[in-house]
Design a protein around this nucleic acid. Sequence first.
DNA 1: GTCAGATAGTTGGTCGTCCTAGCATCTCGG
DNA 2: CCGAGATGCTAGGACGACCAACTATCTGAC
Lengths: 173, 173
Amino acid sequence: MSPVTLTFVPGLPLDPIAEARRLWAAHGWRDAADGMAAVTSLMRAHQIVLARVEAALKPHGVTFARYEVLMLLYFSRKGSLPMSIIGERLQVHPTSVTNAVDRLEAAGLVRRVPHPDDRRATVVELLDRGRELADAATHDLNATVFAEPGISRREAGTLIDVLTEMRRDAGDF
Amino acid sequence: MSPVTLTFVPGLPLDPIAEARRLWAAHGWRDAADGMAAVTSLMRAHQIVLARVEAALKPHGVTFARYEVLMLLYFSRKGSLPMSIIGERLQVHPTSVTNAVDRLEAAGLVRRVPHPDDRRATVVELLDRGRELADAATHDLNATVFAEPGISRREAGTLIDVLTEMRRDAGDF
DNA sequence: GTCAGATAGTTGGTCGTCCTAGCATCTCGG
DNA sequence: CCGAGATGCTAGGACGACCAACTATCTGAC
């Protein structure tokens, strides 16, 4: 038994992930310790950032999932996209798109329109209220989260580079 | 309208996040563009990694949330911890702990024991079957995900450092 | 000693994600 | 031109995360 679980210094809280990495190595799992720490850090950071983002969006009555759909439409040439394209760009399951569009439509931010050429498909169209909300929500999100992500600009660049590499390796694009 | 949405080169797929960063900057949101890209990258990378982790754990019949609880108990001195401590270490809501422990208990991997000194509290105890499953699941997870996280060892170290900084800034530890 | 407030855990509800299964429609090979 | 397989979307269910509200118990100030 390693002594690390016992050496707790009050007032100097330990990082649980650094702790876990030490335990992993001490247990003989050395070649996986860094990966474990990287993955676990990713999970925690995601949780923290998502909470901040959701808090910024809450006053606007949308969640991050729905905000992403709005912005995709916002930046599309025609202000409308087929459901399938939305799912593809956001890398989420078709049912998640159905769910998000259901709620956006109920809120009067988008509407479903039949696809002109393919009767299977549905086109989602951004309404004026949706565009206004996208502007306002982005303003808040930029100010409270994106402009202050909790790391320096240089670190943000580094983070983007490493995660881009990870996504490319996974075939994300 | 920037021409970037039009310049699509078949066979050379664009990174949607790099694309979004360009649109953010082109729209005058320059001081938020890097943060947006960093946060969005984090969300996508989380999604990818979580899917890989869940796939590795599926044969063992546990999810990542439950696996985390098991490993916390696994590395605890007595093989048991109060519910509240579990929630604190994993940084999740008490109801999430209740949920995870419910399922672990139903699977015969842990059991609930009354706290000896505090009748409000419940201690979660790792059973033998739980310890065996933790060993086996960790073996698979180390081999299929943690040892091959999709980035180099040096990048993993960089990622850990940046995310640690981000977590520290958020008061995570 | 007692009572107000804090703490531990659960229940019930919302939301996002995925999966399986299903229907409608399109496409293409024979 | 017709039927098999692919594709687009939705319904229903599982799971994890959160919040609000509730009960039981502990703690500390008076």
